[in-house]
Simulated scan of single mutants.
Amino acid sequence: MAATTRGEDFLQKPDPPVVGKVSHQSIELYWDINSTLQRKGSTHDWLKFSIEEEDAKTHVYGTIYSGHSKQHVVEGLEPSAPYRFRLKVTGRNGEYEYSPVVSVSTTREPMSGEGLHRAVSMNDEARVIDILQKGHVKVDIPDELGFTPLMIAAQGGYLRLVVLLTDHGADVNQVNGSGKNSFMLTCFAGHLDIVQYLRKQGASWECRDKGGCTAMHWAVDGGHLKVIQWLIDDGCKIDIKDTCLAWTPLMRVSAITGNTNVALCLIEAGADVNTKDADGKTPLMVATLNNHESLVRLLIEKGANCDIKTEYGITIPDMAKAFNRQNVLLIFEEMKRESL
């Protein structure tokens, strides 16, 4: 139905709606109609505006907004998709006019780190390359725990991805929420090839996490002899202490894993078997308290002082008795007899 002329009620063909802010899922449209009918009398007499959207398949227009406002935001759209809209202006007597059609496309969906993290976790090299080449995601974007894609790849043992990410500028020394970097994580996981590669890229075994632990501490916790030996050969300090408990790597073995192979590796590299932590405890004391029988025997064989006392005058056998470490007590007695 075409517009008719009824004095001042005459409607002119409106301009197409103006495109405002556009995102990957919304388009802002606004219009400015100069007419004495726009705000004349009661709201019943005001001009009525409708935004109609074309169906891409049927090419039929449907109303998505109707009212007296001079703007409308179309939401829930698909990213990178074309859309066509037109404005319909209706006067108080029912006459109406359509504007020319305006065409606009939504933007591409902003790439979040989730997609990159997922691709790295799945060791999907092609997908990682695709994401990085598009350039919409920072290579060091962290997840909710502060892990970067490089950390995930290093921990997972994905050398090709580690190389790919560093080639795209990934920071080998960036840390997560607990202060650990990719080098520490791969040392703990035992991926020697990545350990060696990250060192070449500038990773330092002197970096510390929030507990003051170094890559050597984490390699020892992981129990990976090849990594530990390589770090030793690379010049990593053997008796470096954390800043929380003043534990050396040997002390951590005594407290956590009791791994005699790791302890022997450290001792043969020069680790002090009689070092003391912040509370004055030695590795032998800590191994006794944690009931690591084989490690207790090894430490004694390698020169650990069995007669040392705490600042309160407590001996190691006293500790073993207090914590009911009967097997450890037997070891002390056996080795004492052997030394006679």
Rank of each mutant, 00 (worst) to 15 (best):
E8F: 13
K13A: 12
H24Y: 15
Q25D: 15
Y30K: 11
I33P: 03
S42Y: 10
E53K: 15
T58L: 06
T58N: 00
H59A: 05
V60S: 07
T63A: 07
S69T: 06
K70P: 00
Q71F: 10
H72Q: 14
V74K: 11
E75H: 10
L77R: 06
L77V: 08
E78Q: 15
P82D: 07
Y83N: 04
Y83V: 05
T90G: 05
R92I: 09
N93D: 10
P100H: 14
P110D: 14
E114A: 15
H117F: 14
R118I: 14
V139A: 11
D140A: 12
D143E: 13
E144T: 11
L145K: 14
F147M: 15
Q155L: 09
L159F: 12
L165E: 06
L165S: 04
D167L: 11
D167V: 02
N173C: 11
Q174M: 13
G179V: 04
K180P: 00
K180C: 10
S182T: 10
C187R: 04
C187P: 06
C187K: 06
F188R: 12
A189W: 03
Q196W: 08
A203E: 09
W205T: 11
D209H: 02
G211P: 00
W218N: 09
V220W: 05
G223Q: 07
L225H: 07
V227G: 01
V227C: 04
I228D: 03
Q229T: 13
D233M: 13
G235E: 02
K241L: 03
C244H: 07
L250I: 00
V253G: 00
N259D: 15
K276E: 04
T288P: 01
L289S: 04
H292S: 04
L298C: 00
L299S: 01
L299N: 01
I300D: 03
C306F: 00
T310I: 02
A322E: 12
I331D: 03
I331H: 01
F332V: 08
K336H: 13
E338F: 05
